[in-house]
Design a protein around this nucleic acid. Structure first.
Lengths: 213, 213
DNA sequence: GTCTATATTCAGATAGAC
DNA sequence: GTCTATCTGAATATAGAC
């Protein structure tokens, strides 16, 4: 079953509407009246479903990351237990990008508003963020153990660069416009693993010469 | 001379204060009273220097990208005219990352608030954004012509991935904490050009096998 | 479970004194 | 060039009817 925020119909419609508005305009610029209007009810009625605006914000942030965790974890779990690191890596990228698309109002809201919400809301959400980082930390360590990723690479920084690159795709990627989702996933995996150089240049030994100032 | 927003002292102090507040809290959550208080004046006095809040926002967005353009353009111009693509590429990354740090209130504000400002403010700012993308477009095309970047790589998408990766560093990179700026720049250049694989695996021919599902 | 009505606070912006 | 004072609209949240 497709994951979704908890609760009855109207409550979920309110969250969906709020997520879309947050993603587009930010939290402070989104009013309770806007959220209510998008669901055809009045602002006062929201308070039957939620304690406060922060309460709504919290739920959107939490779902915006946990839906990605579930999608990536699920995709990796479905793989053959002894599938290669390369397949697992590509699967993780693929399920990350597809989750961002499938739940885009929540995931975009999550990324765009995180730094602009009250501290106590951020703090509760960090638990999810840490859990997600751990998935990627373990995956990259697996790549090092498998002899694929060079141990000389700072994999903490590399992980943050990789995730940042994927997160930023929400700002420009529109599936099927110039690029299919599959092509995007392939390119991200390729750049991270093999880079962009031609095969003839990208040979053992070149690493020592190529960065000399 | 270090670039900075135009105008007399108080005006610049107001912009500096507004940029810092925008970067931290977003536009809508930043009040004219907040900005004024950070400069030790009253809210009404701001209107001697600016027409409106949007006027301030526009100037912060425009400077937040033009300072990066100036820094990168300047760094590339200082290079020997026949320096290698590899040096020019690393220099561009280096000057981008350093400009983001040097003008961080403006650059972070730019990236965080862009999608949340009125359309007419965004539209005026897009001129600068396009100019910056052009610098990188030409640089990557130069890499293809030099035989360094594989022509099979979609360089439009690769450019957006690279810039996105660098932009996202504002969310996690603190110079000197786990990583120096130079190490970050090296890693970004390395991953984009050579990837993360070990030299023994990353040989010609491997490209055909490694991505099979 | 949603309504109307409203209390309270605070936003952006203006006017005119100094 | 900055001040004080204030207009006007709009925000979150509450209360009680239905």
């Amino acid at each position: 079953m497709k994951p979704q925020p908890q609760g009855p119909e109207t409550r979920r419609k309110l969250l969906d509407a709020a997520a879309a508005l947050y993603a587009r305009n930010g939290v402070a610029a989104t009013t309770m009246r806007d959220i209510a209007a998008a669901c055809g009810i009045n602002a006062g009625s929201i308070y039957y479903h939620f304690f406060s605006k922060d309460d709504i914000t919290q739920e959107i942030l939490d779902f915006g990351i946990s839906c990605v965790i579930d999608n990536v974890t699920g995709a990796l779990a479905k793989l053959d237990p002894d599938s290669s690191f390369l397949l697992r890596f590509r699967t993780a990228i693929d399920s990350h990008i597809r989750a961002f698309k499938e739940f885009e109002d929540y995931t975009i809201a999550h990324l765009r508003i995180f730094k602009q919400v009250p501290d106590h809301v951020q703090e509760r959400n960090v638990v999810f963020r840490d859990r997600y980082e751990m998935i990627w930390r373990e995956l990259l360590e697996e790549g090092v153990r498998a002899g694929i990723i060079d141990p000389s690479v700072n994999i903490n920084a590399a992980r943050l660069l990789l995730l940042g690159q994927m997160n930023w795709t929400i700002e420009w990627f529109v599936a099927g416009r110039d690029l299919s989702t599959e092509e995007l996933v392939d390119l991200i995996a390729r750049l991270f693993l093999r880079g962009s150089m031609t095969s003839t240049i990208n040979r053992p030994g070149f690493s020592e010469e190529f960065m000399v100032q």
